[in-house]
Amino acid sequence: MMELIECKNLCKNYKDKSALKDVNVTFEKGKIYGLIGRNGAGKTTLLSIMSAQNPASGGSITVDGEAVWENPNALKKICFSRELNVSQTSSNGLGAMKVKEYLKIASIYYPLWDKDMAKKLVNEFELDVNKKMGALSKGMLSMVTIVVALASKAPYTFLDEPVAGLDVIMREYFYKLLVEEYSETGRTFIISTHIIEEASPMFEEVVMIKNGTLILKENTEELIASAFHVNGKAEDVDAATEGLSKYHEEIIGRSKGVTVFLKNGEKIKEGYDVTVQPVNLQQIFVALCGMGA
């Protein structure tokens, strides 16, 4: 049996709003996935449903062939270290809980909890475990979620905006820690983030969600290798990209810029006065999910 998380026809409705629409996606074991989408696209909803924290309106989720909902066997393989923010912590009472209490609960609930690793990370992040969660800054709350995610040692670990509020040095340190952990254990990480360009080198595959619909799931390197930005006079750009899938067209005067994805041996036609440049993951995201895309 393949070790993977499988979502079939997943739907989630909130009254009259559809947060997820018929999502079919699989996450194989031993990969780092980047889950990207705009605010409100459905990333957190997808992760919370996959970890049974939120019931789906329709469809099914299985982990290594077992249904996730109310299934302790499946749930013990998953850690969803959700983004904590200060307004949440004060409104639901989490703010009154000390960091050490929160970590204690985590140590009880995650069967593979690595106490030494948690201790080491707390020291390295210089977290005061006697502080209440409500007294922590945004960055420190992110550090707590990182400690829980990494020390949980869960085979499938989901991180929702893990670097929110962290300075660049801490972000770099987190990426290093994550890659080290991945190399040593081969755990599966699904990381939802808005800091795409910085995190993209870690992603083996990228999953893109737009308005609750899965629009892309590709190997990151192959995706980047297939995407190009074509720029030049509008008529030249149109001619050079004729027949190709075009995204994010920008017209400034007589100039035009367009992002194209080349599939199955497709090529940008030669002989036209256009500039062809490779694009990065963030530019691909903007092309597919940006305003007017």
Binding site: E70, P72, N92, G93, M97
Partner: peptide, 20 residues
């Protein structure tokens, strides 16, 4: 009771089943 609800929410967020 509110504190208890918080603890149950934290427990569910860490993989506890609703039955438990």
């Amino acid at each position: 009771v509110t504190r208890f609800v918080l603890l149950t929410n934290v427990a569910i967020s860490m993989g506890e089943t609703r039955k438990n």
